[in-house]
Computed example of a mutant assay.
Amino acid sequence: MDIESLPLRDDLVGEEPYGAPQIVVPTVLNVNENPYPPSEAVAREMAEAVVAAATTLNRYPDREATALRQDLAAYLGHGLSVDNIWVANGSNEIMLHLLTAFGGPGRTVLTFAPTYSMYPEYARNTLTKFVAYPRREDFSVDAGLVLGAIDIHEPTVILLARPNNPTGTGIPLEAIDQICRQTEAIVVVDEAYQEFSAEPSAISLLDQHPRLVVSRTMSKAFALAGGRVGYMAADPAIVDACRIVRLPYHLSAQTQAVARVALRHADELLAKVAELAAEARAFEDWARGRGYDVVPSQANFSLFGRFRDRHAVWQGLLDRGVLIRETGPDGYLRASAGTPEEMQALKDALDDMNPEKES
């Protein structure tokens, strides 16, 4: 039997599963991971926490993840409490909860392209109309652009990635404030890469705007991509809305235990954040010096080009043992920040190829 013979939903026919290539090569710089694993001591403590959790795996986990939410509130600060925090299996599930609660048939989610390639899939899976309004020519987003798009499309939910993936561009905090003051929509600020940015978090605006949501992840800065932990900060009413639509016991006891250990060692796990941001900025300077067009980034990745045939460049790098991401605007490629050795491998491969750029 093949998938075409199944009574698949019409809007899923012909669709492919999401996912960046998973290829074993010496230099992996394609999914914006933190290349530095937890130390042996932290890994051992995580393992001990999992063993402790295993002694009660005959029982369901805390379906509210109360202790983890308390720890996350303490990490974020700003006077947040457990009632302001929701947690799920990656920020992907956070977004899915939000669109399940506030999207759906007859409703619209608005975002600004180019942006994270999973956003349309969240909309599709929740039967929400998806609108990707064009960004400014420099890939920026400001209050005027957003408010103009709101007037046209009347969304229920607005998704604003800050810094944006794949461009790395930010949105001024003042713009977020202005947007929230002039819309009744749920405004979701996706701060998956916030720890890498020098800009203040939109969390500082939560007490002024009850329909503002700030989404975060432990996958990137915390080097916990394999842990699958995402979370959000919002008004307790929005948290309660997500609790309505979440599956029961959606976050395993092991996941909760590992995440709590990570938060206890936040200083150690976040120690490489500034270094990774500096690696990305240094690569961008190098790329500009080689004549590449580089989009100024506030995250742990860089978007650069423009190539006449970006797929050929991607393949050429892969052939040289370097995996980056073929995503974003035509002609561009995205490279995650890695170790100094990994970044040198990327530079050496590009110099070896000397790919043709658009004039």
Rank of each mutant, 00 (worst) to 15 (best):
A253M: 09
A253S: 13
R320S: 02
M46A: 13
V24P: 10
R107S: 11
P26V: 12
R306M: 09
R69C: 13
R9Q: 09
T56C: 04
Y36A: 01
H311E: 13
T115Y: 15
G321C: 06
D285A: 11
L205P: 01
V294G: 04
A101Y: 11
L147F: 09
A282P: 02
S302A: 13
F222I: 05
M118E: 08
R216V: 00
A278R: 10
G19A: 09
R59C: 08
A271W: 09
E16W: 03
V229C: 08
G77D: 00
C242R: 01
T126V: 10
L76P: 05
Q22H: 13
K220T: 07
V109M: 15
E33W: 07
E279M: 07
A335E: 08
A88G: 14
W86V: 06
A337K: 00
E93S: 12
E4W: 06
E15G: 01
F139V: 08
A274G: 12
G79W: 03
L224Y: 14
Q344Y: 02
A65L: 07
I171L: 10
A113K: 12
R310H: 13
E358W: 06
E45V: 02
A345S: 10
L247Y: 08
E4I: 00
D138C: 09
I324Y: 12
D207F: 04
V28Q: 11
R260S: 10
E45A: 13
A233H: 04
P105T: 14
L159I: 14
Y119P: 06
E358T: 11
T255K: 11
L12F: 12
M1K: 03
P296L: 03
V50H: 04
T126F: 12
R136N: 15
N32C: 15
H153L: 01
I186G: 09
P210I: 03
E268F: 08
N164P: 05
